[in-house]
Measured scan of single mutants.
Amino acid sequence: ERVRARYDYEAQNEDELSFKKGDIITVLEKDDGWWKGRNGKEGLFPSNYVEELE
């Protein structure tokens, strides 16, 4: 599954994923509120910062 970033997100910890608004992220795992994904790097990000691609 792929999602698009709705906002910029700056990683707060080294296991998190940074991205810019409009970036496409491949979702690897979904957990409550935090998803694991890849966009060149791999890490956790808040699920409310992304939207599913149509």
Score class of each variant (00 low, 15 high):
residue 1 E to G: 12
residue 2 R to I: 12
residue 2 R to G: 05
residue 3 V to C: 11
residue 3 V to I: 05
residue 4 R to E: 05
residue 4 R to L: 09
residue 4 R to M: 10
residue 5 A to S: 04
residue 5 A to L: 02
residue 6 R to N: 06
residue 6 R to C: 13
residue 6 R to K: 15
residue 7 Y to K: 11
residue 7 Y to Q: 11
residue 7 Y to T: 08
residue 7 Y to S: 08
residue 8 D to T: 08
residue 8 D to L: 03
residue 8 D to V: 02
residue 9 Y to F: 07
residue 9 Y to T: 04
residue 9 Y to A: 02
residue 10 E to W: 11
residue 10 E to K: 11
residue 11 A to E: 05
residue 11 A to S: 07
residue 11 A to C: 05
residue 11 A to K: 06
residue 12 Q to C: 10
residue 12 Q to E: 10
residue 12 Q to A: 11
residue 13 N to K: 13
residue 14 E to S: 12
residue 14 E to D: 13
residue 15 D to S: 13
residue 15 D to V: 08
residue 16 E to L: 03
residue 16 E to I: 00
residue 17 L to S: 02
residue 17 L to G: 00
residue 18 S to H: 04
residue 18 S to I: 01
residue 19 F to Q: 01
residue 19 F to K: 00
residue 20 K to S: 09
residue 20 K to G: 05
residue 20 K to N: 08
residue 21 K to Y: 06
residue 22 G to H: 06
residue 22 G to D: 06
residue 22 G to M: 05
residue 22 G to R: 04
residue 22 G to I: 04
residue 23 D to G: 03
residue 23 D to Y: 03
residue 23 D to N: 06
residue 23 D to K: 03
residue 24 I to T: 05
residue 24 I to K: 03
residue 24 I to C: 08
residue 24 I to Q: 04
residue 25 I to C: 04
residue 26 T to K: 07
residue 26 T to D: 09
residue 26 T to E: 14
residue 28 L to F: 08
residue 28 L to Q: 05
residue 28 L to T: 10
residue 28 L to D: 04
residue 29 E to A: 14
residue 30 K to A: 06
residue 30 K to D: 03
residue 30 K to V: 06
residue 31 D to S: 15
residue 31 D to K: 15
residue 31 D to F: 15
residue 32 D to K: 14
residue 32 D to T: 11
residue 32 D to W: 07
residue 33 G to V: 14
residue 33 G to L: 13
residue 33 G to A: 12
residue 34 W to D: 00
residue 34 W to P: 01
residue 35 W to Q: 00
residue 35 W to S: 04
residue 35 W to N: 01
residue 35 W to I: 07
residue 36 K to E: 00
residue 36 K to M: 11
residue 37 G to Q: 01
residue 37 G to W: 00
residue 37 G to Y: 03
residue 37 G to V: 03
residue 38 R to D: 09
residue 38 R to A: 09
residue 38 R to W: 15
residue 38 R to K: 11
residue 39 N to P: 00
residue 39 N to T: 12
residue 40 G to K: 09
residue 40 G to V: 12
residue 40 G to D: 12
residue 40 G to W: 12
residue 41 K to M: 09
residue 41 K to V: 10
residue 41 K to W: 08
residue 42 E to F: 08
residue 42 E to I: 15
residue 42 E to R: 05
residue 43 G to D: 02
residue 43 G to Q: 01
residue 44 L to E: 03
residue 44 L to F: 15
residue 44 L to V: 13
residue 45 F to R: 03
residue 45 F to H: 00
residue 45 F to K: 01
residue 45 F to S: 01
residue 46 P to W: 07
residue 46 P to T: 01
residue 47 S to Y: 10
residue 47 S to N: 07
residue 47 S to V: 10
residue 47 S to C: 13
residue 48 N to Q: 14
residue 48 N to K: 11
residue 48 N to W: 15
residue 48 N to V: 11
residue 49 Y to G: 04
residue 49 Y to C: 13
residue 50 V to I: 09
residue 50 V to K: 02
residue 50 V to L: 03
residue 51 E to K: 04
residue 51 E to Y: 07
residue 51 E to V: 08
residue 51 E to Q: 08
residue 51 E to G: 06
residue 52 E to F: 12
residue 53 L to N: 06
residue 53 L to Q: 06
residue 53 L to A: 08
residue 54 E to H: 13
residue 54 E to W: 13
